[in-house]
Design a protein around this nucleic acid. Sequence first.
DNA 1: AAGTTCACGTAGCAGTCGCTACATATCAGG
DNA 2: CCTGATATGTAGCGACTGCTACGTGAACTT
Lengths: 177, 177
Amino acid sequence: MTKDSLLPLLTAHVLAHGLGGASLRPLAKAAGTSDRMLIYHFGTKEALIVDLLGYIAKVYAAALDAAMGSERAATRADVVARILAHGDAPAMQPFMRLWWEIVAGAARDLPGYQIAAQTMMAELLGWLEGQMPAGDPDPQGGARYLMTVIEGTAMLTAVGHGDTAQQGLLAGGLLPS
Amino acid sequence: MTKDSLLPLLTAHVLAHGLGGASLRPLAKAAGTSDRMLIYHFGTKEALIVDLLGYIAKVYAAALDAAMGSERAATRADVVARILAHGDAPAMQPFMRLWWEIVAGAARDLPGYQIAAQTMMAELLGWLEGQMPAGDPDPQGGARYLMTVIEGTAMLTAVGHGDTAQQGLLAGGLLPS
DNA sequence: AAGTTCACGTAGCAGTCGCTACATATCAGG
DNA sequence: CCTGATATGTAGCGACTGCTACGTGAACTT
């Protein structure tokens, strides 16, 4: 029972039940240990959360790499459509729910949240740059532009305004019609 | 001591200390009452939160109306610049921090969160529609497009990727250069 | 004047929180 | 064989959680 064998189990519990309300005893049960042992390994609940966020960021990076198709999209709209489909996949939804908790924690400057969120966004940006269509006039700037649009769409979707975002993407020429 | 006189004080406390970790006794102290009385008035903590979210949505609507300048912007980029400046104002930052908690709650389907978030986004959309430049070819779609971009920028700013979003807006022609 | 409802204080319930003290059990190195 | 570090279980601490039981003045109704 090392830290590294604990982190995947803790991640699974947090994906299912959330990060903000997580407490040591349920976390320990999910990981097959006791709260006593979690403190033994991580020292503090806060340190556990920080370690866990770092691990989740690495898992997210690996998931993005795995989802990276080798063929490039033909247009920016195709890039947007591809990544939105990826985010809408049922397998991604527990992660999406967790993501907004991470954003909320980052906005409140809780330890570890900012770094984890920045790591994941930097990873997404790199992925997007690699996905930009060949011959795009401004791949760097375009990737940043698409990331902004994509995250706005994700947020509006989370609060039930997904259709509004879709209409916006259409009006902006960012969805294949 | 009625509900309506309590809600502004509760809102102030929640803006300062967050919504997720709020518990009855600190809330009561901030409102000058006891936890006993909060339960007396609202019945349940959950009902209190739902009422509070509804009230906060109304406060947000009023704040938007008050911030609505009478003169229209000349370009879409000016609309974006104006509302981003509004969101970056120091007075708005406690609300922004709260906003991400609301989004996280909506993503987890906590009672009241979705409705409050939808109300606020609908209000913002209406405001944007009224702000679109005269002669804009597609005010409805354009407003939805700008809202998506603006919310994406807000999220990236919250996690410390504000500069990335700025570069994206520039590349998308959505910031006055 | 009697009865009813409202508004509020005090005290406390059962449960959970993060964390600790203490006792072991296991196992490698001298 | 002894010793020290690593690992784990049991019990519990004090603080806090949402919430309730109970009592009491004040106001309003009939």
